[in-house]
Amino acid sequence: MNRLLIVHHTASPTTHELFERVRSGAQCDEIEGVEVVTRAALGATVPDVLAADGLILGTPANIGYMSGALKHFFDTVYYPCLEETRRLPYGLYVHGNNDVGGAVRAVESIAGGLGWERVSAPVMIVGAPTKADLEACWELGATLAATISPG
């Protein structure tokens, strides 16, 4: 069974709602052979990443940047995972109250340095999530799970 790791920082009810939608999409009945593992960004470890066949990252945009928790995750796993996780498929969702562009650029820069491969465009949500935003989060989870599904 392949493993999809969701690393998230759910600092608000809104980011928690987005996380739940991503997880729901990743665990949809149509996709088989994928175990979904979730870790808070401050608790995710090098072994978690090394065991993953795909990864979804979720963060709020804080002062134009990813959360400190997600940055800590990257600081922790970067060098130990640098060679072993090249071409790891990943996806990203970001929520902010005004601008999420800086957070997206920062995450994509680090993921690019790791050699990870983005599977779909980042889900970028500003303000209160709309129905379309929630559907995009569900699709992100389903897309990553389908990408790594052995079936």
Rank of each mutant, 00 (worst) to 15 (best):
F73W: 06
L134T: 00
V126K: 08
C137K: 07
E32N: 14
R105T: 15
H8C: 03
T59F: 04
L5F: 05
T85A: 03
R23V: 11
G102T: 09
R3C: 05
T143N: 01
D53R: 10
A146T: 12
L57Q: 14
R118K: 10
G64H: 00
L42F: 15
G54T: 12
A146M: 13
A128I: 13
R39S: 09
R87Y: 12
T130V: 06
F73C: 07
E17P: 15
V37Q: 13
T85M: 07
L144E: 06
C28G: 11
I6L: 06
L92A: 10
H9Q: 13
D133M: 06
T147G: 05
A69V: 01
I110R: 05
R3Q: 07
A41P: 05
G151R: 15
G127T: 12
N97D: 03
F74R: 07
V77C: 02
R118G: 06
A136Y: 00
V34S: 01
A128P: 09
E17F: 11
L92V: 07
E30K: 12
G58I: 06
L57H: 12
A41T: 00
T14N: 09
G113Q: 04
L144N: 02
V37M: 07
G141P: 05
G68N: 09
E84V: 04
E108I: 07
V119F: 08
R23S: 14
V123H: 13
E35L: 02
W138A: 14
G151T: 13
I148M: 08
K71Q: 04
A52E: 02
A61G: 10
G43N: 15
V94G: 10
V104E: 08
S109F: 12
Y93G: 02
G113Y: 02
Y78V: 01
A44K: 08
N97S: 11
P150L: 02
W138Y: 13
P13S: 04
G96I: 03
I56A: 03
T38W: 08
A145T: 06
